[in-house]
Simulated scan of single mutants.
Amino acid sequence: MTNPLFYAKILLFGEYGIIEDSQGLTLPYSFYKGALKFSSLDSEFEKKSNTHLTKYADYLLDLELPKGFELDVQKFQYEISEGLFFDSNIPQGYGVGSSGALVAAIFERYSITKYNPENISKDQLKNLKKVFGLMESYFHGRSSGIDPLICYMNLPILIENKESVDKVAIPESEEGKGAIFLIDSGMTGETGPMVQIFFEKMKTEGFRKTLKEEFIRYNNACIEAFLKKDMNPFFRNLKKLSNWAYEHFRPMIPESIFNVWKKGLDSNAYYLKLCGSGGGGYILGFTKDYEKAEKMLDGFHKEVIYRF
């Protein structure tokens, strides 16, 4: 059996906003990956994974998927009984798509109609996103389908709005002083409770208004400037976005990160934003001078994902 690898993903922009029709920009992240494999299930990890797959197969058995996107669940169940497990180093609860990679791997192996990610049309992308949303809802209660889509396509994806997504080219990473990096908050976050907090906030008119008029405007402007590699407007809007999140997404910012988030805003040395739903896991950092930011963030585990 060949084991296609499915990489983690990073949502650079669009967290929560994409629920309300903002744009989003996501990248595959090859540092973390997962693949379906067979074993005699000797280790605790393999046993646990196999048990999870058994429960997930029961869910998929009752799931009605659109025509052309059906899964051979019987084959999946048979292979689970033969020792199938998901071998992954993608951390769970870190906002980098652990369930997305699993869903992508299962679809790739068990979809009755086979697709080639390189030749997928925009319409098929839209349908795949829906299918992946249904498949991933098992893990989060509600899913846009974006995470598995990025893991499956293994390409940067521009989320144009709720309905429409497209493949996109991002500027080449180069060895400059600037960087986009991940900071480990040291704790895991759960998507469900964080999304619940967001929907509670959406019940107040003031929050809805500022989300639409400010957050979405800054978010979309960041994406536009980043894709053009126009770094001055990029950092200008990024500061506004980071400041907005500091004020309005406070419950989603892990306690360990709270003070350094403010320190970045006050010093302009770096700006932080949520990576996924927040509550824990990774936080995204952006800086024009990584050496300086690294010193200021001493004590935190960091990983550079893009240089400019």
Rank of each mutant, 00 (worst) to 15 (best):
F45R: 14
E46T: 09
E46M: 10
K48T: 13
K48R: 15
N50H: 10
N50C: 14
N50M: 11
N50L: 13
T51I: 14
H52F: 15
L53H: 11
L53C: 12
L53N: 08
L53E: 10
T54H: 06
K55R: 14
K55Y: 15
Y56E: 02
D58P: 00
D58M: 09
Y59I: 11
Y59F: 15
L60K: 11
L61K: 14
L63K: 05
E64K: 13
L65I: 02
P66F: 05
G68H: 12
G68V: 14
F69L: 05
F69P: 01
E70S: 06
D72N: 15
D72G: 04
V73F: 05
Q74W: 01
Q74H: 06
Q74N: 12
K75P: 00
K75Y: 00
F76P: 03
Q77T: 13
Y78S: 14
Y78F: 10
E79I: 13
I80T: 12
S81M: 12
S81W: 10
G83L: 05
L84Y: 02
L84V: 08
F85D: 01
F85P: 01
F86P: 05
F86C: 07
F86M: 05
F86N: 03
D87Y: 05
D87N: 15
N89P: 07
N89S: 13
I90H: 04
I90S: 04
I90R: 04
P91L: 09
Q92P: 07
Q92M: 12
G95A: 10
G97W: 00
S98T: 08
G100I: 03
L102E: 05
V103M: 11
V103T: 09
A104M: 13
A104I: 02
A104N: 08
A105V: 02
A105Y: 04
F107Q: 01
F107D: 01
F107V: 02
F107K: 04
E108N: 07
R109E: 13
R109F: 06
I112M: 12
I112W: 01
T113I: 14
T113Q: 15
K114Q: 15
Y115E: 07
N116E: 14
N116A: 11
N119L: 13
N119D: 15
I120G: 06
K122L: 11
K122P: 07
D123Q: 13
D123V: 08
D123A: 09
D123Y: 14
D123K: 14
D123M: 11
L125V: 04
L125E: 08
K126A: 06
K126V: 03
N127H: 11
N127K: 13
N127I: 07
K129P: 00
K130T: 09
K130S: 03
V131F: 00
V131K: 00
V131N: 02
V131C: 02
V131G: 03
F132L: 06
F132T: 00
F132G: 03
G133V: 01
G133K: 00
G133P: 00
G133A: 00
L134Q: 05
L134E: 04
M135S: 01
M135R: 07
E136L: 06
E136W: 01
E136A: 09
E136H: 07
S137V: 03
Y138C: 05
Y138H: 08
F139T: 03
F139M: 08
F139I: 03
H140R: 13
G141L: 11
R142S: 14
S143L: 03
S144H: 05
S144T: 11
S144Y: 08
